[in-house]
Computed example of a mutant assay.
Amino acid sequence: MTAATRSPSVVRRTCRRVGLDRNPMRRREDRLQLAVAATLTLLFLIIAPLLSISVGGRIYQTEDRIAQAQAAQLHQVDATVLEVGKAPLYAPITPARVQWRDAQGATHTSDYQATGVLKAGATVRIWLDGAGRVSEPPSSTRAFSKALVITTGLVFAIMVCFGCGYALLRRGLDRRRARLWEAEWATVERMWGNHGTRPDQA
């Protein structure tokens, strides 16, 4: 069998599985299920990008403004590493003791946690807040990360709601199809008497 003849066969099988063929045996419930599935899929493909752009964009802008405001209250100075502690096994940080001078020439000493390897006597750039305390450096990825997490959660929640709604609909339609199947075979048995044999009783 060539690819040219195999391709239409694959298309026909796919259409038959999703209910797009013209099979006269398909019930109204089958067409309703297909229509709901197509509608929910289309709605999800429309809502998900719009939600990501609108909600995600607003969250990113808000968090970015907060990060810029926090960064404006910080400043950097050069500090000298006095001693280095032992890095814990559960976190990729190196505790250290650092010392620096402020603009007035006063000496300050404080604990510092670095994400890399430090040696005593080395010079590091540290961030200080308005009160002169060692602070965490401003994050350049916090706004994007928070927007991504919240948007992903909302999209997942919508997908779950759509999936649960479709599952409930399909369950109800399956029950209705089963009742119709039983009623139709009861009619056939009355018409044929003992000559009719149900497929599930063969």
Rank of each mutant, 00 (worst) to 15 (best):
V98W: 03
R133E: 10
L173Y: 11
I158S: 02
V149P: 00
V84C: 02
G193L: 01
M1A: 13
A96C: 05
S9P: 02
M1I: 14
V98H: 01
W192R: 15
V188H: 05
S52M: 08
P137T: 14
E63P: 04
C164I: 14
R142I: 11
R190G: 14
L32F: 14
D30P: 14
P138E: 05
Q113I: 07
L40S: 04
Q201W: 02
R26S: 11
T14H: 04
H195R: 12
P137W: 06
Y90I: 09
K146W: 09
G193Q: 02
R65Q: 11
A186F: 00
A183I: 00
P88I: 06
Q61V: 10
G105Q: 09
A122S: 14
T14G: 06
G130E: 03
Y60L: 07
D78K: 11
R65G: 09
T80H: 09
L154E: 00
Q76M: 12
R97T: 12
L118K: 01
Q201G: 08
I53T: 13
A87P: 06
G165P: 05
V18Q: 00
A157C: 08
E63C: 05
R142G: 06
A122V: 07
A67L: 05
A186M: 01
Y166Q: 15
D102F: 10
A183W: 01
I59W: 00
E182F: 09
I46W: 07
R31H: 15
V81T: 06
A167V: 11
L180T: 14
S140Q: 14
P8M: 00
P137C: 07
N194Q: 13
E29L: 12
T94F: 00
D174M: 08
C15I: 09
I66W: 04
A69P: 03
S110R: 00
I93E: 07
V149W: 02
A103C: 08
R179N: 11
D129Q: 01
Y166K: 06
C161P: 02
T151F: 02
T123F: 06
T94Q: 02
V117R: 00
A106K: 10
S139F: 08
S140I: 11
L50A: 15
L74Q: 04
W185L: 07
Q201P: 12
Q33L: 15
R28D: 15
Q61A: 14
D21L: 04
E29M: 11
T62W: 01
K119Q: 13
T141I: 10
G105F: 08
C15R: 01
A131N: 01
S139R: 03
I47R: 00
I158F: 08
W192K: 12
G172M: 10
R31A: 11
G153M: 05
R31Q: 11
Q104W: 08
L45W: 05
T62S: 10
I66M: 10
V149A: 04
G121R: 00
N23H: 12
G57V: 03
Q113M: 09
P88W: 06
T187H: 03
A143C: 04
L45A: 15
R170A: 10
F44W: 11
I59D: 01
T115W: 04
W100G: 07
